[in-house]
Amino acid sequence: MQHWDDHQLFSALCQGQKEALSVLFLRYHSDLLHYGQHVVPDRVLVEEAIQELFIHLLEKGADLPEVSYVKAYLFRALRNRLLRRIQREQSKKNKELLWMGTLKNSFSQEDIRFEELKDSKVREVLLEALNSLPWRQREAIYLRYYNGLNTREIAEVMGTANQTVLNTLHQGLKKIRNFQKLKKFVGYLFPWLLLYLTSI
């Protein structure tokens, strides 16, 4: 079963086969855990939600309509579970549970490929830009370039149209680029400004 593709495993899982559950779980557990923590920064809660999701598929999967992208489906299902959970908690006025939509710094230094950006200043600027993006743009960029989902899969996860995803990605990348340009400009201007101010 190790060699089965996602669709074969997924339909076997939905038919109630435990072995398929194990293989598919091991294949996507770490991706789901990482993604989940981008939605809600609470590892224990995310872990619990992933397990519940797979148990749900094993027991109730037979009723599911056909799924076009398995990985995207799993991401969406986890996302919905977590967002529902947040709504429930917030209505109980449990303000401790944060949602990434309200939280900054969802990316950290270790998420950036080192070989491409050796200069730590440049890395910092990129991180700052990423973390300053609106939640939807951040999520689209994360799904596309961190998880390698294509735009159709992202559309499935985020529940929008393919072209909307393209636009969101485009806006996000443009903002990052502008942010980098601005920082570079300020960095270039700063010494002269200092010189000017001290000369007055």
């Binding site: 998420d111 950036i112 490929r113 370039y145 961190y146 990348l173």
Partner: peptide, 9 residues
């Protein structure tokens, strides 16, 4: 730029 994106690790 959409193809190249962000160099995540």
């Amino acid at each position: 730029s959409l193809v190249i994106g962000v160099p995540f690790q």
